[in-house]
Amino acid sequence: MKINYPALVLLLAWAAAHADASLPGGSAVNQGWNALYPERIEAVRARGDAVRGEAAFVICQGCHRVGALGRADGSYPRLAGQHASVIIKQITDVQTGRRHNPKMLPFADQHALTSQDIADIAVFLNDLPVPANNGQGPGENLKHGRLLYEKDCAVCHGFSGQGSGDKFYPKVSGQHFKYLFRESQKIRDGNRRNANPEMADVIKNYTDDDIAAVADFISRLPVRP
């Protein structure tokens, strides 16, 4: 896989410089959601190796399962096929508490994962196949879900849910419905501190039904095998 590392580092530097100016203070949303934090930079700069990543991923698969397919009950997300930059951001955010995740923390702290491990795991996951067997929603409100997705979400996450590695926008296609639903609720309610404040703003007036409809629509987007 190819990641434009210099561009990513520049982007992170820019984000760090603008982190404090981008949001009014006191928001529950982390202001430097994609900022240049040292441990994030260290992992981004380290050249990942998918073979080493497969070995390092062993401590993750007790929860995220073999092949990083996650669980349809939404308890653990699917990581297979996710952009390397997104994986690096999320692991380092859990590691430092920017993303509050006490369940994962002991398995992501620096005792368990080095920056090199994170870079290796990120490349390994980025290249994994994404089978079309993710958990889907009830399928009752798909038209509404599509409308909202194309109006509010596609501009960042893409019309096919592919996201953008360069911009830390996660790929959402192939993800489990229940996970998408729960995390979107958290982002709307200010309970996922490392989220992009723009997304929190866009969905702030979504009802739970709106979120469910979008998550259901996303869970049915085609995935690359």
Binding site: I59, Q61, G62, C63, R65, V66, D73, Y76, K103
Partner: peptide
């Protein structure tokens, strides 16, 4: 399978 409620990972993972 572990215990998803309490965050016990599957032993088989490692």
């Amino acid at each position: 399978d572990g215990n998803t409620e309490t965050g016990v990972p599957a032993c088989a993972g490692c």
